[in-house]
Design a protein around this nucleic acid. Structure first.
Lengths: 125, 125
DNA sequence: AACTTATACAACCATATGGTTGTATCAGTG
DNA sequence: CACTGATACAACCATATGGTTGTATAAGTT
């Protein structure tokens, strides 16, 4: 059984960059459920085979897809793990956001007693 | 109370592109909890103020941050909604992935009776 | 009003990106 | 082995990106 112990700190730059293109996102989406080769994928887009092949290469370098030989084709499959890596970062941001709201609420609670006692003007350097 | 009814189909390209840069992700992270102006933000990075200002502009165009005047400064705040838009897309992909696994499992169950009845060689065009 | 602080923006440069066409490689098939 | 199908990759081009410096504007401060 294969258990990758924990891939080193992920390189988010190529990951998000790969997702920043409509064609590539569509390839990712297709490659989740389908089992298409590069040529078949290329059929879906209004550009040359070579262009699509380059998009696939970008996705592969970003770790978002993998290819395996099936006959003469190289079948493209989306790598869930990479999607999760990206999602986890966004989750982390969301968590930070919640933490901030919590802190603000605490602050409001603490300050509640001071309402209408004159603490109004805010210093702004 | 302000309730944006539903922003039109989100433009993922600038959103993910904005996240595809380490400096910009760091600005987003900082702007979640801090209340810094552009000049203060610039202090954290080894580049000119103008460079940081351009990064902030990219983030603003992508909808990831907003600025509001506080005194003479323009304080930068992360926009949670944009983060959620990005996360939702990744959630959708994950969901597609789960659906695929489910379908595969169903297929395996259906085919289970046919085991050892000779259905082995797989056509591959 | 003059000065200072904070921000914006234009012009410029080097490199990266997204597309093209053409050529090379590589695995099945007759 | 020759042929075809599928992929890879190099070379090229136009535009975008990430950085720089310099100048302009806008809001507080004295």
């Amino acid at each position: 059984m294969v258990v990758s112990v924990q891939t080193a700190l992920p390189d988010f730059d190529p990951l998000f960059a790969a997702l920043a293109d409509h064609t590539r996102r569509d390839i990712v989406r297709r490659a989740i459920s389908a089992e298409e080769g590069v040529l078949e994928l290329a059929g879906h887009y209004p550009m040359s085979f070579a262009a699509v092949q380059k998009h696939v290469a970008v996705l592969e370098r970003a770790g978002l897809i993998t290819k395996r030989r099936v006959g003469r084709r190289r079948v493209v499959r989306t790598n869930l793990e990479a999607l999760l890596v990206a999602r986890r970062l966004l989750d982390q941001y969301e968590e930070l956001w919640r933490a901030r709201i919590d802190r603000m609420n605490e602050l409001i609670a603490e300050t509640a007693g001071a309402i209408d006692t004159g603490a109004k003007k805010e210093s702004q350097r």
